[in-house]
């Protein structure tokens, strides 16, 4: 990870993708590619729960079309202001636009899916 506090918007993060191919990213907005960032502070129970929940949700619903970056603000506190982080844990969706934030330990899967626009509100769970 590089210092990103000056460029929190998606454009600034394109060169940081490390485990995905450029082609997938180019088509991200169209084909539902997800660029996510999870902010935590240390290895608290909430942090660990959030990481576990996010990993599970992404594998279940976004397999092969997502990137997740976990940022520990205890290590990089300067990133908090740039991304307007107030509550922790915070999940930020950079892609697809618009920017979305989900706070909490992501224990409510339904709300995460709705928040990330993976599933429109009100559709039955399948």
């Amino acid at each position: 990870m590089t210092d990103a506090d000056d460029q929190p918007r998606p454009a600034g993060h394109e060169d940081q993708k490390t485990h995905d191919d450029p082609a997938g990213r180019d088509s991200g907005g169209i084909e539902g590619f997800y660029n996510l960032r999870l902010y935590v502070a240390g290895q608290t129970p909430k942090s660990l729960a959030a990481i576990a929940n996010l990993t599970r949700i992404c594998e279940d619903h976004l397999a092969e079309r997502y990137t997740v970056e976990v940022i520990d603000l205890l290590v990089k506190p300067q990133l908090a202001a740039g991304d307007q982080i107030v509550a922790l844990p915070t999940l930020v969706r950079y892609l697809p636009p618009p920017l979305k934030r989900i706070i909490g330990n992501l224990s409510d899967t339904e709300k995460v899916l709705v928040g990330l626009d993976i599933r429109p509100k009100g559709l039955p769970n399948s």
């Binding site: 502070a41 603000l73 307007q84 509550a87 920017l99 979305k100 330990n105 995460v112 709705v114």
Partner: peptide, 26 residues
């Protein structure tokens, strides 16, 4: 610090550690 309700979804427990980190860093 910009807090926009429309931009924020909540799922599960959270705290204000982010604010503490920002303030502490500043």
């Amino acid at each position: 610090v910009r807090v926009e309700r429309a931009e924020i979804h909540e799922s599960g427990e959270y705290d204000l550690d982010g604010l503490f980190v920002r303030l502490g860093h500043a």
